[in-house]
Design a protein around this nucleic acid. Structure first.
Lengths: 147, 147
DNA sequence: TGTTAACTGATAACTATTATCATTTATATA
DNA sequence: TATATAAATGATAATAGTTATCAGTTAACA
């Protein structure tokens, strides 16, 4: 995991570089994205900020996440059921392991992914720009609990 | 690609085995899913069927796709923008290569994916049940066209 | 052929997201 | 430091994809 403070600085700097204003609301959103604890959804970000920033609008969270996505500083993880989740700590594509019971998301370190990408490019003659890799399963905690 | 006729038979049989009725509407939907040409969306399936089955309801398509998913005979591909797409020709999880220009979806053959899954299980101590792997890029056709 | 549980089709409800717009504010400049 | 202005906020309406509801219909069985 990258240092959340450094990620915060980088994201803010990137926003300044692109001429966007730094508002208190924006700072609060970037602070949460810089850590991205548990890969939060927009709803989660909104809930967390509302605790000490009660006027924060959900629309503002959406607009800021979209903005930060547009400068490449947050990774969007879409799921079939709708709710997108975000990772501003590690915005480059990387694999995820998702527990289907407790919904926890873990980042594994995989060596052989680069090799796989080369294999794909070779076989399909695509110019590969990005990828998305999720494994779904049951985490060790949820396995030991019966049910 | 599996033989669409065989896939059709298998899906219908699986529905019978589970005690579901075989209606004309269901047959038409299964027929399209058995081929899954271009990984169609619900909307696409509905449009295709309406040509010679004008009373077909969108709700019926949704309900049938959900039903066939529940017996494991169609793979659902969810995307961040909402619209899910389906593959009833090859319902087990498999990688996709998606052209971001023409939206074409190609199925590559990859050798090293099983190995990757073992690596993940080892490292995270998850019991891995399924996965989702998409590569995004530009296909050779779209590369040669300028723009 | 009749019975019945399942299915269909029309539409309402729902959820996540995006658009709109009046008001407010961060920033650049005088 | 005061001011001008483009951008941001917050409240809410609109939208898109999907799911729920329910009255009427039908496939599959005896």
């Amino acid at each position: 995991m990258a240092d959340p403070k450094k990620r915060f600085e980088i994201i803010i700097q990137e926003l300044r570089n692109n001429g966007y204003k730094i508002t208190p609301q924006r700072l609060a959103i970037v602070k949460i994205l810089a850590r991205s604890d548990g890969h939060p959804s927009v709803e989660t970000i909104h809930d967390r900020i509302k605790q000490d920033f009660p006027t924060m609008s959900l629309a503002t969270v959406y607009k800021n996440v979209e903005l930060i996505k547009s400068v490449g500083e947050v990774l969007e993880l879409g799921f079939p059921n709708g709710s997108n989740r975000y990772d501003g700590n590690k915005p480059a594509p990387h694999p995820h392991v998702i527990c289907i019971k407790c919904k926890k998301i873990v980042d594994p370190d995989l060596d052989s992914l680069d090799e796989l990408e080369k294999e794909v490019a070779m076989e399909t003659r695509f110019k590969i720009l990005s990828h998305r890799l999720d494994f779904f399963g049951i985490c060790s905690n949820c396995i030991t609990e019966k049910g």
